[in-house]
Amino acid sequence: MNIKQVNAKNNKLLIFLSGEMDANGCSKIRPALEAITKQHQSHIVLDLSGISFIDSSGIGAIVFLFKRLKEQQRSMGIIGVQGQPHELMTLLRIDSAIPLNSGQDQAVLSCML
């Protein structure tokens, strides 16, 4: 699993994730997710377009990040979610807490960069 961070306009941070968000993949990115909670951008956007599979470990990592940011009065959104990850996140109603933008993602990204 890979993670890439890009500082964007208006105090936002884009996080590009790729690979499989399973227990093994999440253990590799956990330190980076911890570091994100110590940064100062007001809004975090996770781009999951490169994620081909997600399980409970991946959902847990996303919820962990969301809760930590919320405690700090920061916000988070998710773009690019598709396929199996989208199905699982919808089934678990993740979209009721964290905004999912699976359509028009390129427009969202171009406005942020």
Rank of each mutant, 00 (worst) to 15 (best):
A23T: 15
N24R: 14
G25T: 03
G25D: 01
C26K: 02
C26Q: 09
K28A: 14
R30I: 13
R30C: 05
R30N: 08
P31E: 04
L33W: 12
L33Y: 11
E34Q: 15
E34C: 01
A35T: 10
A35H: 14
I36S: 02
I36K: 03
I36Y: 04
T37K: 10
T37N: 09
T37G: 05
K38A: 09
Q39N: 13
Q41H: 14
H43V: 11
I44G: 05
I44H: 03
V45Q: 11
D47E: 07
D47Q: 08
L48N: 04
L48H: 01
S49W: 06
S49N: 15
S52Q: 06
F53P: 06
I54Y: 06
D55M: 02
D55G: 03
S56L: 08
S57H: 07
S57I: 05
I59G: 01
G60E: 04
G60D: 03
G60N: 11
G60T: 03
A61N: 00
I62S: 09
V63D: 01
L65M: 08
L65I: 02
F66P: 02
F66S: 07
F66V: 01
F66K: 04
K67I: 05
R68L: 05
L69W: 02
L69K: 03
L69G: 00
K70T: 06
K70P: 00
Q72Y: 11
Q72F: 12
Q73D: 08
R74C: 05
R74W: 13
S75D: 10
I79Q: 05
I79S: 06
I79C: 06
G80E: 01
